[in-house]
Write a protein that binds this DNA or RNA. Structure first.
Lengths: 367, 367
DNA sequence: CATTGGCACTCGCCGGGGGAGAGTGCCAAA
DNA sequence: TTTGGCACTCTCCCCCGGCGAGTGCCAATG
């Protein structure tokens, strides 16, 4: 029943209601729309149009004789067809540039992501989220085994871009420092330029060959590697959140129970990871409005997300989370821009390291 | 004027008011105290006593003819002299033991701290905080230089206990992989078994000697090390927070403005770091009630903190943050216990690594 | 002299009532 | 098709009065 195409007037009114509602937070009445409309239609006319829009599901009334408020469908129509993205101000761009330098001495990846999430929260006044680059795209620079007390071993994985991951594993037998350093050399030869998923395959492959050869040392090195890989799940992603305190100011979350649910959602990060990953898979920026979101915990929120890239590959995602009543025009631009700025900052950090491209491209086959 | 010693009755009444207020959250009247008091005093008598306590500053009335509520001073007296710590239940202890295994295969330090902060939040229903062990106590296991694209260098610091820190630095000149690995060996010889502050001293010392000798490689290795140390401030501590959503449920924070201030305080971690560090310096568990806290942002909160140890040295701190109206009896025990459990878990991970003791003891001289 | 019961008083909380204001739907006229 | 008019609805807010909890003071009591 919501399928009839909208007339120009319907669109104008819908847009007016949304724009007005976004700034005031109050249900919008026919009178207000009439005043703001350039072809000065009377309130009565607007009322009829609004009534149509309500019937079609784009607006609704909190109660008889209040103004209208956009529904999720209304917002959806707005962002898809009515919205005109508002460019960032020069000030904002300078601000971003300063925090994410594209050219000169760039900080390391973690730092860059931290700055990005702070920018998102600060510039949007909502909650900023950043999904860190996934290690599954990381190409091995060096794998190191170090002995710890109690016979345990520290495994350090370093990617060619400088990401570091480390885990503690317990080998079956005690290993001396010299053995470990010999093993370090062995695996670095074997795993040169491979990504984590590729290393997984390689370990299994070598282990089976190994029964024929009998290089004790390599066998034990492979054992350590596979123990490390067992701990290091590929889908284990890190997500940064900032600006959670911003939601407290928003009248849309006056209800405490709702706010609590929201904070819980932020605390267990795995749900955020899922949502951001979904965006990553789609490979383009995305808006999820209220009930459109698969996670029911976010049913009265809007997410604007966008993947960011490294060497043309989407490797992570970032976005803004806020109430449905948000300034879409501005925030869509903000999220898009930040994903672009971040991609550039990442690229500039590593320009001239051409070897890595092939490896990344080569592993595109995995799901 | 608050200096007169309290009679037994005063104490009983004060304790009764506090206990009652903590569970109900409502101002406590004379009638209620009278009912709960075992030597059945009449409400009138209690009223007189309460009036005394108010005059001495231990209680106050939100308004004429409401019950009494404890002041910060009242709470202080309570925790210092009236409170009897309530031991944890067997269930709780099992729960903790399961999460912080003392004996068997222990996870790495970061994981241990993560579990601890979750336990704090979960068992207290307030906000849990943990200050991570400071790297200044960390003894070098290995320092590694790895080349990154663009001529930058990744420096990885690994402590003997398995803590890992890494930074990206930009050396003055380009360095090849072979040079870097030679340099790695050089510094590991020089810095063997030193802590970060000691390494600082050592670098300066070697640099000045260096002008006389002319080992180009060592000079460049020292340059890299000092660039790393410049980024790695000693007071740069990591603090973990969990359970922030718990404060939303508490009626004491019904006021949104107050809540917002609170969340901001949690977001910029440096303030938390300062507070926890103060506790660390005192070397014993500590309770900060409302206005006693140096940071005005925490003026209507209570912090219960306790340092945790590694090899007799306090290396970090943990605690609970909540409203002043909290169950002190239980939470003090909880914080104390968790600091003990965590200390044990840390100790058991490294038993038998005797060499490290001397080094840690030797660096006690720094402030 | 500490303790107690009695009593008048003070507030905060809660629910009801009434008026103002904003907005609607419908209808008839332009 | 658009518009002005009109009756209607519903929320918000303020005011008011009663209720209940608790107090302070005082005189009586053991």
């Amino acid at each position: 029943m919501a399928s009839a195409p909208l007339s120009d007037r319907h669109r104008d009114v819908l847009a007016a209601v949304i724009v007005n509602y976004v700034v005031t937070g109050q249900p919008v009445g026919s009178r207000t729309v009439s005043r703001n409309s350039r072809d000065g239609l009377s309130p009565a006319t607007i009322r009829n149009t609004m009534s149509d829009l309500e019937e079609m599901g784009y607006l609704y009334q909190p109660h008889t004789s209040a103004g209208r408020v956009p529904t999720d469908l209304g917002y959806r129509y707005y962002v898809d067809r009515l919205m005109s993205e508002r460019p960032l101000s020069r000030r904002e761009i300078r601000h971003i540039r300063a925090a994410l330098p594209a050219e000169e001495e760039a900080p390391d990846v973690d730092d860059l992501l931290n700055r990005t999430v702070k920018l998102l929260a600060g510039l949007s006044s909502h909650v900023g989220v950043v999904l860190a680059p996934r290690f599954r795209h990381a190409v091995l620079k060096r794998l190191e085994f170090l002995s710890l007390p109690e016979g345990r071993v520290l495994v350090i994985f370093v990617s060619q871009t400088g990401m570091v991951d480390h885990r503690v594993v317990s080998p079956r037998e005690r290993l001396s420092d010299t053995e470990l350093s010999a093993m370090t050399n062995l695996v670095n030869e074997s795993f040169q330029d491979l990504t984590l998923p590729q290393i997984r395959v390689r370990v299994v492959q070598l282990m089976s060959e190994e029964k024929a050869l009998y290089d004790r040392l390599l066998a034990r090195a492979l054992d350590l590697s596979s123990r490390y890989l067992a701990q290091r799940a590929d889908d284990e992603d890190e997500v940064l959140v900032d600006g959670a305190s911003n939601v407290l100011g928003e009248p849309d979350f006056a209800d405490v129970a709702r706010m609590k649910a929201l904070f819980r959602a932020f605390e267990d990060k795995s749900r955020l990871v899922d949502l951001l990953n979904a965006c990553l898979a789609e490979d383009r920026s995305r808006i999820l409005i209220g009930s459109e979101c698969p996670d029911p915990g976010f049913s009265d929120l809007t997410l604007i997300t966008s993947p960011y890239r490294y060497r043309q590959q989407p490797v992570g995602a970032l976005g803004v989370i806020g109430p449905r009543r948000m300034d879409y025009d501005r925030l869509v631009t903000l999220v898009d821009s930040l994903s672009r700025f971040l991609s550039e900052a990442l690229a500039s950090r590593t320009r001239g390291a051409g070897e890595e491209t092939a490896a990344v491209a080569a592993e595109e086959d995995d799901a």
